[in-house]
């Protein structure tokens, strides 16, 4: 179980997160929706301390970190329990697909090379890239790069995978292949939080949907409730606008 309590984050005078509480149960697929600038990505990055929260508590199972006095070791431990998939993939440019996935297994988890290689190949096969093991990222399409990114996160066998707008940088025709992979691993019971603008995907795949705006959680609940009968006016407005956009895009 992942539990965030009272997470606050400011950049200078701008308060981006105004005290966020969020609980993610084992095996949950949580989708975080919200307009740009609502703080969803910042919240995600606070979980693995790519942003340092100013206040609050991050807990992964029994391991709790008080953000006001997080030590280097605490942060390191949090990062070992989590994995992240980035909007811009952020694959290690000087390493092949296989090396990208093996890196964390060998250097962080200290697995023997042979074992790491096996796990990495498995993960890459799972995302459908068993035939691209030795390609450098510069020779892969955006969709393929993002699938390597997912394999890299998956292979670490983390408590939770954090997806930061995983399809936002992709050409429309490549979005599908990445979403299909995420859908597949979601079905395997891996806990994940996905920040996304893909409404249909959130509705179909998420077990729990969170709507954020202006640094607070406006509303959360199971997808049928949030999409079907949203309680808050702000949520309704956002959904209405987003759903209109869909119909245009088709």
């Amino acid at each position: 179980m992942i539990k965030l309590t009272g997470i606050k984050k400011s950049f200078g005078k701008q308060e981006v997160l105004k005290g966020i509480d969020l609980t993610v149960e084992q095996g949950d697929v949580v989708a975080i929706l919200g307009p740009s600038g609502s703080g969803k990505t910042t919240l995600l990055r606070c979980i693995n301390y790519l942003e340092r929260p100013n206040d609050g508590e991050v807990a992964i199972h029994q391991f709790k970190v008080d953000c006001k006095r997080a030590s280097k070791q605490d942060i390191h431990t949090l990062r070992q329990k989590t994995a992240m998939v980035f909007q811009n993939y952020n694959l290690f440019k000087h390493k092949t697909a296989l090396e990208n996935v093996m890196e964390g297994l060998v250097i962080v988890q200290k697995l023997p090379k042979q074992k790491a290689r096996e796990l990495a190949v498995q993960a890459l096969e799972k995302v459908g890239l068993g035939n691209k093991l030795n390609e450098y990222p510069s020779r892969l399409s955006g969709g393929q790069q993002q699938r390597v990114g997912i394999a890299r996160a998956l292979a670490l066998n983390p408590e939770i995978i954090l997806f930061d707008e995983p399809t936002s940088a992709l050409d429309p025709e490549l979005v599908g292949e990445v979403l299909a992979v995420i859908r597949k691993i979601a079905g395997e019971g891996i806990t994940m939080i996905i920040v996304t603008h893909e409404m249909a995907f959130a509705r179909d795949v998420a077990s729990h949907v969170v709507f954020m705006d202006d640094g607070v959680v406006v509303e959360e609940g199971p997808p049928h409730q949030l999409f079907g009968t949203p309680k808050e006016e702000r949520t309704r407005q956002f959904l209405k606008r987003s759903i209109q956009e869909w119909s245009y895009s088709i």
Binding site: N48, Y49, L50, H76, R79, Q80, T82, A83, M84, F86, N88, N90, L91, F92, K93, H94, E103, G104, I107, V108, Q109, R152, A153, L156
Partner: peptide
Amino acid sequence: DKGQLEAAYAIGMKTPQALWRIVLPQAFA
């Protein structure tokens, strides 16, 4: 790119590992 360092941190590397294995080889090139 700053994302390279962030990705290294995200998979659990410490700063010296991230610099030595990810950032410096690319900086050298």
